[in-house]
Design a protein around this nucleic acid. Structure first.
Length: 901
RNA sequence: GGGCGAUUAGCUCAGCUGGUAGAGCACUUGCUCGACAAGCAAGGGGUCACUGGUUCAAGUCCAGUAUCGCCCACCA
């Protein structure tokens, strides 16, 4: 047992003073490293299997947001809890190279130096990017230390590290060898600003007001024309056909004939295709196979030429004839004008539709025909679907399972090539007609490597096992895969969660984690997304400065799960106030503990008083509640349980009741009251000290995963066993501590105290003035009050407590009824009798309404017959209580009305 | 067009298996009594969005409606 250090609490609570020091303290002790000695049993068996969480790797360019703070609070809370439960824990940190985001940042920096990446060339650019990474990357981890999270920093991984990169390339080759990776010329989502292809998930669809232009295409034979409707007139330059529905009678005779494309004068064929909806627009669709995914399919079905009319920057190319060199939107205006001048434009309608935007830079996406690499997803999705259906991967909250399944069941192939430089370069080599997939350059001369890199998510989806050394068969991989839990935002359920599960099954044969917990998405108080441009994103570091990391953690962790959180800075006050309360309570307790080594005190040697039995019972309940709620990720309930117990039960009641007992020590300073105190008093003092210490210790343990800094600080200040609270054991709900009788009895005492306090206030008695109180009640109730009189009296400032079985009621008094016992506050000449009468009348009226409700229920035969017996009995008891209370109130009213003023 | 979620005190939200509506903040009144004014004590405040249904009993289960929000979707 180590003695406490009460002096540590002499200054007021200030998180800024204690938090940074504590982090260094934990790091020094090495509490973040996994302790294999704890995991006696092999993985996957029993509760002692290692508990593993991998961090969702933040972008190397990232800095800490409230969203990160929320995720980290949850992850670290669970990790710390599991560590205290005695499990070996591993929290894996790392960063994502974030292809497009990082390349954008580095290019911007180059621009400020009046350079472009093309001037530097590929190698020069990559060198600059790595330099940037070394200099600025990973800032977020410095910030996250401030939060008190406990990853094993020695295991930090980066998705572009040598080993990790091998894993990524290995996966590409493996999937290619299986026929699941293929190269093809298809329509992809193209961002003309980033000049790269994107996956479907990287495109945000935005409802936008646009136009539907109706354009007449004359027939070649001069016999009229066909009118098509389009939202993107500029693509007409690439039209190679017109499609109509085969069942559409209006156009039946045109099928097979040729139309002449206006402005371009190209002859294009009119074809019949089911994809056309006769009811939309004109029922005739212009076909631009190189600039529309639908048209591409249609074009292939009818062997129409594919003409690309823009370059990679969205500028019209040579195929655009007179419009070459124009930006696609300028070209749109010019083309519309030209069509109008030539009399081809029949109509323009307003039209609302969804337009794709680059999720990185918000540029409008251009469907673009190009050579890309794809992953065939359906075979990978199958086990991931089954895993969720069979519950092998559980999601919290469960409703996300549906979203997940819906996506997987309609999954489309994944475009994984990106026209960037920062990333894993595709391991494919070309020489003439030869094509080789190989991690290293093939032997021989003249090989040229594919220019493209892989989608960032093509590396992140390997995170749960690539961080552990895969594809090597490392001991870590054997020990720590599968992970236990994934905590992330629901916004990346497709990008990342679903893909990790697919990769887990495909490469490791089992799910990467058993549970997925989805946190809230943090929004501002008006419900807007946090964004840099709006400036509505609070800086977590500033929040920690102001309220403390403990408060940020405590308040963020208890946000609603998996739905939007409207963040309001004001909520953070709560945690700080709570920490402050505990600080002061601990200060009080440390001042009263005396010199005895409490760890040597045997609980069985103590005679626990009612208050002791009560608070121990409540502690057992709190331990049970916190643990149960942590198990199901119900953080709001878990924090509520410990908060309420610590503040409203331990501080508000137990400590107040302990004060008179501690005061015994002051009657006999020095030798723990020897000689002056009776043996019973000495025992009581020891008991009060032991229980208040023991319960405080329990509170600090239960709260530690949520507020690690202040709990550690306070734990060090009281007598404690072990070096750090972070490695102390998690409190168990001791069976022998549950004590329903003590809870009932203290409930009565609390009722009496509250009633007296209320009578005082209602009677406008000065707060400090001691008052006499008379209680009439059952023998058991009176005995209870008698036994705890010395503790109850100060709580309500009772000067003299008179207990009587059925003695006379004081003639002039304010009164109340608590569990059938009558409480009188004699008030000769002090009280406003009219007010007291009115108060009693109000009280009686309330009771009468309740009574009516209960009576009605008990008259109902169906209720008596069908409700569970214990419910009926409860109602009967309630009826008795209400009638008794009402009766006593009536008598109080009578006795008051008999009094003349 | 499909799916999901929300709607409970002035605000932000809890209410898990149906059985007398809760918390924090805000509000009212009163408190420098040696842990704490970041506090203490006592209070006020809700026909649980609406309509039907199931049930002895519904904030809680079912159906529908309304409003708001999110996600998915190849009507050009």
């Amino acid at each position: 047992m180590r003695p406490g250090n009460p002096e540590a609490l002499s200054q007021p609570y200030d998180p800024r003073r204690i938090e940074p020091e504590r982090y260094a303290f934990w790091e020094q002790l090495g509490v973040f490293q996994p302790r294999p000695d704890l995991a006696a049993q092999p993985k996957g068996t029993g509760s002692k299997a290692p508990f593993v969480i991998a961090i969702p790797p933040p972008n190397v360019t990232g800095s800490l947001t409230m969203g990160h703070a929320l995720g980290e609070s949850v992850r670290d809370c669970i990790i710390r809890w599991q560590r205290m439960e005695g499990r070996e824990t591993l929290y894996i940190p790392g960063m994502d190279h974030a292809g497009i985001a990082t390349q954008n940042v580095v290019e911007k920096k180059l621009k400020s130096e009046k350079k472009t990446r093309h001037q530097l060339g590929r190698d020069g650019f990559l060198k600059a990017a790595w330099e940037w990474k070394e200099q600025y990357g990973g800032l977020i981890f410095q910030q996250e230390r401030r939060l008190g999270i406990t990853p094993d920093w020695k295991r930090e991984r980066f998705t572009l590290d040598e080993g990790y990169s091998r894993a990524v390339l290995h996966v590409f080759k493996a999937l290619h060898d299986e026929g699941l990776v293929y190269r093809g010329r298809y329509i992809v989502n193209w961002c003309p600003r980033c000049r790269t292809a994107l996956s479907d998930e990287e495109v945000d669809m935005v409802e936008t007001d646009g136009h539907l232009w109706h354009i007449r295409y004359p027939l070649k034979d001069g016999s009229g024309g066909v009118t098509v409707a389009t939202t993107r007139p500029e693509t007409m330059l690439g039209d190679t056909g017109v499609a109509v529905n085969p069942k559409d009678a209006r156009y039946a005779k045109l099928v097979g004939s040729m139309a002449v494309l206006p402005l371009v004068r190209r002859e294009i064929r009119i074809v019949a295709d089911d994809m056309v909806d006769p009811k939309f627009g004109t029922g005739a669709v212009k076909i631009t196979p190189a600039h529309d995914a639908n048209d591409f399919q249609t074009g292939r079905r009818h062997n129409l030429p594919e003409i690309v009319v823009m370059d990679e920057g969205g500028v019209m190319n040579d195929a655009a004839g007179d419009f070459r060199g124009l930006d696609r939107f300028v070209a749109r205006e010019r083309i519309v004008a030209a069509l109008q001048d030539a009399g081809y434009l029949e109509k323009v309608e307003p039209h609302r539709h969804a337009i794709g935007h680059c999720s990185r830079c918000n540029t409008i996406i251009e469907p673009y025909l190009s050579w890309q690499w794809f992953v065939k997803m359906a075979p990978l999705a199958a086990p991931a679907i089954e895993a969720a259906k069979k519950g092998r991967v559980k999601m919290f909250p469960a409703r996300w399972k549906k979203v997940y399944l819906n996506w997987l069941e309609n999954i489309r192939d994944w475009c994984i090539s990106r026209q960037l430089w920062w990333g894993h370069r595709i391991p494919v080599w070309y020489r003439g007609d030869e094509q080789v997939v190989s991690l290293d350059p093939p032997p021989g001369e003249g090989w040229r490597q594919d220019e493209d890199v892989l989608d960032t998510w093509f590396s992140s989806w390997l995170w749960p096992f690539a961080t552990l050394g895969w594809p090597e068969k490392t001991p870590d991989l054997d020990r720590y895969y599968p992970n236990s839990l994934m905590v992330t935002g629901s916004d990346i359920i497709f990008f990342w969660v679903a893909r990790m599960i697919m990769a887990g099954y495909h490469f490791m044969g089992e799910a990467p984690f058993a549970h997925v917990y989805f946190t809230s998405i943090v929004r501002d108080a008006q419900g807007r997304k946090m964004s840099k441009s709006l400036g509505n994103s609070p800086d977590p570091l500033a929040m920690m400065e102001k309220y403390g990391a403990d408060s940020v953690r405590f308040c963020m962790v208890q946000t609603p799960t998996g739905q939007d959180l409207l963040f309001d800075e004001k909520r953070l006050e709560n945690g700080k106030f709570f920490a402050n309360k505990l600080w002061n309570a601990t200060k009080l307790v440390t001042m009263r503990l005396g010199d005895e080594d409490l760890s040597t005190v045997k609980e069985s040697s103590l005679r626990l008083s009612l208050a002791d039995r009560w608070i121990l019972s409540r502690l057992a309940n709190a331990a049970k509640d916190v643990t149960r709620n942590l198990k199901t990720y119900r953080f709001a309930e878990a924090t509520q349980a410990i908060y309420h117990f610590a503040w409203n039960e331990y501080c508000d009641w137990y400590l107040e009741m302990a004060k008179p007992r501690w005061a015994l020590a002051e009657q006999a300073p020095g030798e723990a009251g020897s000689g002056v105190l009776t043996p019973e008093q000495r025992d009581d003092l020891r008991t009060a000290r032991w229980v208040s210490w023991r319960v405080l210790d329990g509170i600090l343990r239960l709260l530690h995963p949520f507020m690690p800094f202040v709990t550690e600080e306070l734990w060090q200040a009281i007598p404690h066993d072990g070096e750090t609270l972070a490695l102390a054991s998690w409190p168990k709900a001791k069976k022998s501590w549950f004590d329903a009788e003590a809870e009932r009895e203290v409930g009565f005492l609390q009722g009496v105290v509250v009633a007296v306090r209320n009578l005082r206030v209602e009677s406008k008695i000065a707060p400090g003035k001691p008052v006499p109180v008379v209680v009439r009640g059952g023998q058991a109730q009176l005995d209870l009050l008698d036994r705890l009189a010395s503790q109850v009296k100060p709580l309500a400032r009772i000067e003299h407590l008179q207990l009587s079985r059925d003695g006379a009621r004081p003639p002039v008094a304010a009164s109340a009824v608590v569990q059938g016992a009558e409480i009188f506050l004699p008030l000769d000449g002090l009280v406003d009798l009219d007010e007291e009468r009115a108060r009693l009348a109000r009280e009686a009226q309330k009771l009468l309404a309740d009574l009516e409700g209960v009576k009605k229920k008990l008259r109902n035969q169906d209720f008596l017959r069908k409700a569970k017996p214990e419910i009926v009995q409860k109602e009967n008891e309630r009826l008795g209580q209400l009638e008794e209370t009402l009766d006593k109130l009536k008598r109080a009213q009578q006795s008051l009305s008999a009094v003349r003023e």
